[in-house]
């Protein structure tokens, strides 16, 4: 449904998006994940035709965004990071304007009523947008994207600034969309994407660093154990010894602690318990362990690890 190929966007010398490719299949909800400033919004702006890429192509349901911008744009409903709302208009007037702008042919009154019902803004239909709360404004922005029932919906950080209850409502809304639409959803919060998306694309510094199903990403990064250690001893000796311990998959020196020791993070497969082995190995090289505890592995850690580029994640899906 959506095909992004070798997308590059340069601002002068700065490369904002560097050779990003992925595809989104019909009816799929794709999570677009990355830290702030990674190039998420730029990529989305290119997909929707707001910006032009330096090179690379974007095809929406067979329409190339540069060759047939009207065709491609008419297939997309877009909610940018800042909803494009005219503050002085009432919700009704604004949605009617969007309806006219997009040249929708569906029966006007019924269609707008349905969109309002789905996004739960019927009770503010007659109010002026600038007087609405942030949550309502976001939903009006969402409604605007849904007008005309476009097959592709692109949402740029749709839950930013919402309260927890609204976030849950928004998630349910997006999940509901997935049945009838192809959705791209960007966020820098992994748990949010995990809750609604079938597949996750991770972007960092303008580059694609992972493209996997949500399940894979979760098991890849939660199927391990992590131990936090404070050890007294020479850095190299400690690192070498820890790496040699059976079952240890990864060792990282974190920092110097206040009391003069060094903190390490040791990772192992979930099924291996390496604590005793570490104790013995450290005793052998005379590097006393002054603290050892289990550290939680969260999805946020996984996310940070992927975006920090520390591990090689196998790339597939859109490739």
């Amino acid at each position: 449904m959506i095909e992004v190929k070798n997308l590059v966007k340069k601002y002068g010398d700065k490369v904002a998006v560097n050779n990003v490719s992925f595809t989104v299949n019909e009816g799929e909800i794709l999570g677009f994940l990355g830290p702030n400033g990674a190039g998420k919004s730029t990529t989305m702006n290119i997909i929707t035709g707001y910006l032009s890429s330096t090179s690379g192509t974007v095809t929406i349901d067979g329409c190339e965004i540069l060759d047939d911008p009207k065709g491609a744009k008419s297939k997309i409903g877009y909610l940018p990071e800042i909803p494009p709302l005219y503050q002085d208009m009432t919700v009704k007037r604004y949605l009617e304007f969007v309806y006219d702008l997009k040249r929708v042919t569906l029966p006007r009154k019924e269609h707008l009523a349905e969109v309002c019902k789905v996004t739960k803004i019927t009770d503010v239909y007659g109010r002026v947008i600038k007087n609405l709360s942030k949550g309502y404004r976001q939903r009006v922005g969402f409604a605007q994207a849904l007008i005309g029932n476009p097959p592709v919906i692109i949402l740029d950080e749709p839950t930013v600034g919402l309260d927890p209850k609204q976030i849950i409502e928004m998630r349910n809304l997006i999940r509901g969309l997935g049945k009838k639409h192809t959705v791209i959803l960007s966020s820098h919060v992994l748990s949010e994407i995990q809750a609604v998306c079938d597949r996750i694309v991770v972007i960092n510094n303008g580059q694609l660093v992972a493209d996997e199903s949500t399940e894979e990403i979760t098991t890849n990064f939660t199927g391990m154990k992590r131990i936090q250690l404070h050890i007294d001893g020479n850095d190299n000796t400690v690192l070498m010894t820890l790496r040699d311990v059976d079952g240890v998959t990864r060792v990282r020196k974190v920092m110097r602690t206040i009391d003069g020791f060094t903190e390490y993070i040791v990772e192992s497969k979930a099924e291996n318990d390496v604590r005793k082995a570490i104790f013995r190995a450290m005793a052998k090289v005379d590097c006393p362990i002054v603290m050892m505890r289990n550290a939680e592995v969260s999805l946020e850690d996984a996310f940070l690890r992927i975006t920090a580029g520390e591990t090689q994640v196998n790339r597939k899906g859109g490739r």
């Binding site: 911008p69 800042i82 005219y86």
Partner: peptide, 14 residues
């Protein structure tokens, strides 16, 4: 300034 142009420029109008 208000970023509303994003709505116009991504709509199917030239």
């Amino acid at each position: 300034n208000k970023k509303t142009e994003q709505g116009l420029l991504t709509a199917p109008v030239n």
